[in-house]
Design a protein around this nucleic acid. Structure first.
Length: 580
RNA sequence: CGGGGCAUAGCGCAGACUGGUUAGCGCGCCUGCUUCGGGAGCAGGAGGUCACCGGUUCAAGUCCGGUUGCCCCGACCA
């Protein structure tokens, strides 16, 4: 490709709309342009990267027996009503109506479509396992699109669905995908961590996320250095912390104290001169189970912890979980926000975290404005019926597996794999005939990779102050050839000759044949992030050209006749290193 | 959904508070000449429904009302 005709509008300055490094660099390097919030054009350079990532994914999916197909983005509501997700998915599902008034949606995922397809066309266990995948545009009406293609409303995703005859088969497919995913991200040059995750709206019996570690990541991860425990914070557990500080105490008499204006745990603890871990945090939630079934529940956690709403939601098994409104709280507790507590609650389920269970002489809200109780004792002053781990793990807690100290970091979720079990096959009534002649439901799994997000994550991990540093495997081009002086016939002639030779050898190469000063070409080359650069300049007098590595800034000089081979060797070696 | 901010040339911004010539600046773009190893110099030039709709006024980029779009923060930890 000739730079003079490449559609890659680079920018000298950071665009005002971008916050994160990957977003800024993708725009500056002329790889993407925004169409609307969370909706993007991929320009030629950016799209080449996308296609590289897609190709790696295809190779690894195919290697595990995956078969590529293509399903529609536009899906009839009927299918979603069958699975029950039409009502469950919420406002994130892009819904629309055709000219005949029939409801449709733009698919955020394809369990319904693929399960129906398999149900209608597969009959026997002999045809299993079946692994079907596609790389396709998905739609999610995100509450807040952010960070460019990292959280977009329209985005590319690879989704694979596995169909097996039994649980053992499903587990095998899951393992195969786990392996394939590790290979995909490794080949893309990413440092990642696999973490336990919450299956969320997709459902199922277990799932893991592939997280690219990055400061700008939207997810918080808890991990242990001593064993290999790692989990998304919304799913993580930890050992119940040390409660010895109050264990030996005698239970003192419950006493109501005046705490004017002290609403938060911080304020109450300061006002009373007690530690935060001596207090109990009481939150009221509205748990919605269906359109006409809901209840208010109280959730209790030790004052220095926070509640993990994902855990609470999963325990309750509700569709939505929201903090209760003031009026509702007043109705069940008689108290005002800031002063509510578990004592004297009537007709409300109270979910209690183990950190509260053994607390003695604790501080709780009195259910009356400007008052708290001191010396509250769980079991004596309020019932301990539902003891459930509902706290948010934090750094410093101890690992459930080995007891070591847990740490936290941030990550970008680039892949997510799920064991679905029978959830969708039952909902869609998808059965096959097993060896014993009986009809059985498929054991399913589903496995997603965000393609655009993988690209953004790769930039977050591979850049410097000058621009992107593409791993060889997903670089839009492997090498750029720069003739230093535009009007110098020798420079241009030699550069063109090297460019042509590389092309003939199948190397993905760009020649910067623009009438620009050398500085402009160097800056653009660094910004775009070509892994290798051949500069044809002064050294030509000695019959040499310069080969420069974008990543290390290392420079080596090669005689004209050797540079092509050197480049080919370098590309091959880097690709090999990434895929081994 | 709540709060805040922004919208002026392709990009980044000034001008608005205090209405008044022809709306500026830097970068980019076009032409010519000179340059050519890290975003070159000189000369000339093009490019604007000042987001949109309405109002006030002799006069609106500027004041008032509304709409839309975009960005950021938050979405309740009692």
């Amino acid at each position: 490709m000739r730079m003079s005709s490449l559609f890659a509008p680079t920018l000298r300055e950071d665009p005002a709309e971008a916050e994160t490094i990957s977003h800024k660099l993708m725009i500056r390097a002329g790889m993407i342009r925004k169409v609307a919030a969370g909706i993007y054009n991929f320009l030629p350079l950016g799209y080449r990267v996308i296609r590289k990532i897609e190709q790696i994914i295809r190779e690894e999916m195919d290697a595990k027996g995956g078969q590529e197909l293509f399903m529609p983005a536009l899906q009839p509501a009927e299918l979603w009503k069958q699975s029950g997700r039409w009502d469950v998915y919420g406002p994130e599902l892009m819904r629309l109506i055709d000219r005949n008034g029939r409801p449709f949606c733009l698919g955020p995922t394809h369990e319904e479509v693929v399960t129906t397809l398999v149900k209608e066309n597969v009959r026997s266990y002999r045809e299993l396992p079946l692994l079907l995948y596609q790389i396709q545009t998905k739609f999610r009406d995100e509450i807040r699109p952010r960070f460019g293609v990292m959280r977009a409303r329209e985005f590319l995703m690879k989704d694979l669905y596995s169909f097996d005859k039994d649980e053992e088969g499903m587990n095998k497919s899951y393992e195969a995908m786990y392996d394939a995913y590790c290979r995909v991200f490794k080949r893309c040059g990413l440092a990642f961590k696999v973490v336990e995750a919450d299956p969320g709206a997709i459902g199922g019996t277990g799932s893991q996320e592939f997280m690219v570690l990055a400061k700008t990541g939207e997810e918080e991860i808890v991990y242990c250095d001593d064993c290999n425990y790692a989990a998304n914070t919304n799913q993580a557990s930890s050992i119940v912390p040390d409660m010895d500080f109050s264990m030996g105490e005698e239970e003192r008499e419950l006493k109501k104290v005046y705490t004017p204006g002290a609403k938060t745990i911080e304020e109450v603890a300061n006002f009373l001169g007690v530690e935060k871990k001596r207090t109990v945090k009481t939150l009221f939630y509205e748990a919605i189970y269906s359109q006409d079934s809901w209840e208010i529940v109280a959730a209790l956690v030790r004052g220095d912890y926070d509640i993990n709403e994902t855990k609470l939601k999963n325990y309750l098994g509700c569709l939505y979980l929201n903090l209760a409104k003031e009026e509702e709280i007043a109705k069940v507790s008689g108290g005002k926000v800031g002063f509510v507590g578990p004592i004297g609650l009537k007709g409300v389920r109270v979910i209690i975290d183990p950190t509260v269970q053994r607390l003695k002489n604790a501080v709780v809200g009195a259910g009356e404005e400007d008052y708290h109780f001191i010396n509250a004792n769980p079991g004596r002053d309020f019932e301990l019926k539902e003891i459930v781990d509902i706290r948010l793990v934090r750094a410093g807690d101890r690992c459930v597996r080995c007891g070591s100290e847990l740490k936290t970091t941030r990550g970008i979720e680039v892949g997510h794999i799920f064991k679905l079990g029978l959830k969708y096959s039952k909902a869609m009534d998808a059965k096959f005939v097993d060896r014993d002649g009986k009809e059985k439901y498929y054991y399913m799994g589903c496995y997603g990779i965000g393609v655009g997000r993988t690209m953004a994550a790769a930039i977050e991990q591979n850049h410097d102050e000058d621009g992107i540093i593409w791993p060889m495997s997903i670089a839009p081009y492997h090498v750029v050839v720069i003739p230093v002086e535009y009007s110098n016939g020798e420079h241009m002639r030699v550069a063109t000759q090297i460019y042509e030779s590389l092309r003939e050898r199948g190397v993905e190469v760009v020649i910067d044949d623009r009438d620009e000063s050398p500085g402009v070409k160097f800056k653009d080359a660094d910004l775009i992030g070509f892994p290798l650069r051949i500069t044809v300049g002064d050294a030509l007098k000695e019959g040499k050209v310069e080969l420069r590595w974008r990543k290390t800034k290392e420079v080596r000089f090669y005689p004209l006749g050797e540079v092509v081979e050197a480049v080919i060797k370098e590309i091959e070696e880097e690709l090999k290193a990434l895929s081994s």
